[in-house]
């Protein structure tokens, strides 16, 4: 029996070999990829903390954002952060796969960003606001005038309450008048959709 150099079966065998080796290479790649997927995972507390606004205002009832993030991971509800507003709740809900719920009014309501400003003439230099500020953004000495470093202020509101002469105001920051593109009007953004759903 003579064997032809190229016949149907040899072509088929070649193609099979090609196909199989491709499959093996692909399989290896997928395996490597899957392994890599496993490695990088940040801790959940970190990721929750990342989503919180870091104003450190304590309106949630915890001393700072990180403690609240820890409690969220232990099952605390996610709707206690007024400065974060709906957007933060939605993001948290997505991250933790929980149902979003409206902001808990017991903890305050969402306000647009404002920074504290001391009416300096009225300041009596009691240092109470300095002690209240969670991020050391107020400078001044005992019996001397105090002032808020506007650039550093997180707008947490915590200094307003302790001031004995009520000389601290929260002022909305005027943003520079730049042109902003809006999403074309036919669209309802996800958050507004959620707002109406809530």
């Amino acid at each position: 029996m003579t064997y032809p150099l190229v016949d149907w079966v040899s072509i088929q065998a070649l193609l099979w070999l090609l196909g199989l080796s491709t499959l093996i290479v692909l399989g290896l790649k997928i395996w490597r990829w899957l392994r890599q997927q496993r490695v990088q995972q940040r801790s959940v507390v970190d990721r929750v903390n990342y989503l919180l606004p870091q104003t450190q205002c304590g309106q949630c009832g915890y001393p700072g954002c990180l403690p609240y993030a820890r409690e969220i991971c232990r099952g605390e509800s996610i709707n206690k952060c007024p400065p974060g507003g709906t957007e933060t709740i939605v993001r948290l809900a997505k991250l933790l796969n929980r149902a979003p719920s409206p902001l808990n009014p017991a903890h305050g309501e969402f306000k647009s960003f404002a920074v504290a400003a001391i009416r300096e003439a009225e300041c009596v230099g009691c240092t109470k606001c300095i002690q209240a500020c969670p991020i050391d953004a107020i400078i001044g000495g005992s019996k001397l005038m105090h002032t808020v470093i506007e650039k550093e202020c997180s707008g947490c509101d915590l200094c307003v309450e302790p001031c004995p002469v009520d000389c601290i105001d929260m002022l909305a920051i005027s943003s520079p008048a730049t042109f902003e593109w809006t999403l074309p009007s036919t669209v309802i953004g996800a958050y507004s959709k959620l707002d109406s759903a809530l």
């Binding site: 870091q54 450190q56 500020c133 969670p134 050391d136 953004a137």
Partner: peptide, 15 residues
């Protein structure tokens, strides 16, 4: 901003 505030808060606590 958040990261900045967070650092300052951590420093505050440290202080």
């Amino acid at each position: 901003l958040s990261a900045h505030w967070q650092r300052r808060f951590q420093f505050h606590q440290y202080r």
